[in-house]
């Protein structure tokens, strides 16, 4: 028998077996080894290759390969129909519906997440990040920021005193003064940090919170630039399309001053998110910047407030209670 005759004979025998394909799994396996096993008919064909002239070997080899592919595909197709239950014994006992191993998972506090997000938004437009002390002298926390002693503006921030002239900072704005004392303009910074207010603890106020301050000083800085950066921030943080308004206000260290509100659909009203303004010339005078040349803007926002608005949290105390049922949601 030539090799081609052998190939034809195997094909013919396979067709016959295919016509009477067994319905029992074990017989299917027997049939599988009859053709594809180590001593099966296809293996026999490959053995015959040894006896044919070298010149013809490649062609015959290809013919056997083609046959193998043809038979295998037809066999597999038939075999798959024999039973849906064609897994081996190990696979049968594998219950994929079981829960996975109990891996303990941790979480990042929502305030940290907000802080990181806000920092990254401002870093992406060229703001550097600076920090400063929480235990601060009266000069840096108040006086240099144009809060004179015995001025009613001091009532805007109830203060913890450590000494007569040492306070727990009431805002991160103290770092504005440190930065400007240490560096020449221009500068562009954000300043995150913990601040304190001597206010009774309730759902809407806590004795401390976190702020992010922004300060930009350069030539020809305008209200429009301030509005631009805050527009950008609000869009990045709260999403496109959230209504924002910019309204006049008062802070001793900015003039003109403004507050920014965003529209809260859930509450059906404007919610204040931050205070801002153009750096007051008195502040520049206090740090020795020439206010006829340099202008700047500053803004400050509460991280708690941002987080509350973003996630619809209505009680600031939750952040400091650290109930796992709260933490695991973030």
């Amino acid at each position: 028998m030539t090799i081609n005759e052998s190939i034809a004979s195997v094909r013919k025998s396979f067709r016959a077996d295919l016509d009477s394909f067994p319905s029992d799994l074990r017989e299917v396996e027997l049939l599988r080894s009859k053709y594809f096993g180590r001593k099966g008919l296809l293996a026999e064909l490959y053995k015959q290759l040894a006896d044919i002239p070298n010149k013809e070997k490649p062609k015959s080899g290809q013919a056997i390969n083609a046959l193998k592919i043809e038979l295998k595909s037809e066999f597999d197709q038939k075999a798959s129909l024999v039973s849906g239950d064609n897994q081996d014994e190990d696979e049968q006992s594998l219950d994929l519906s079981l829960p996975g191993f109990p891996i303990t998972s941790g979480s990042i506090h929502p305030l940290q997440q907000t802080l990181d997000e806000i920092k990254s938004i401002f870093k992406s437009v060229g703001f550097k990040v600076a920090y400063g002390p929480e235990i601060e002298d009266d000069y840096h926390n108040f006086e240099a920021l144009n809060f004179p002693k015995h001025h009613p503006a001091r009532d805007m921030q109830d203060t913890f005193f450590v000494e007569e002239d040492v306070v727990l900072r009431t805002h991160t704005s103290n770092v504005q003064i440190h930065l400007m004392e240490e560096q020449e303009p221009p500068l562009r910074y954000i300043v995150p940090g913990r601040v304190y207010r001597n206010e009774a603890v309730s759902y809407k106020s806590y004795c401390l919170f976190h702020q992010i301050e922004g300060l930009f000083v350069d030539k020809n800085v305008s209200m429009a630039d301030l509005k631009g950066i805050l527009d950008y921030f609000v869009k990045r943080f709260f999403g496109e399309g959230i209504p924002m308004r910019f309204r006049p206000s008062f802070f001793p260290f900015t003039e003109p001053s403004a507050e920014v509100d965003i529209w809260d659909d859930k509450r059906g009203k404007w919610m204040e998110i931050l205070g801002c303004g153009m750096v007051d010339p008195n502040v520049f005078d206090n740090v020795g910047y020439d206010s006829s040349i340099w202008h700047g803007y500053a803004f400050g926002m509460g991280i708690e407030r941002m987080t509350m608005l973003k996630y619809g949290i209505d009680d600031i105390r939750l952040f400091y209670q650290n109930d796992i049922r709260f933490l695991e949601q973030f």
């Binding site: 437009v125 221009p186 000083v217 350069d218 030539k219 800085v221 305008s222 630039d225 509005k227 527009d231």
Partner: peptide, 11 residues
Amino acid sequence: IHSSFHYGGLY
């Protein structure tokens, strides 16, 4: 007041 962006002191 419209919004603008001041590129000074950047980068």
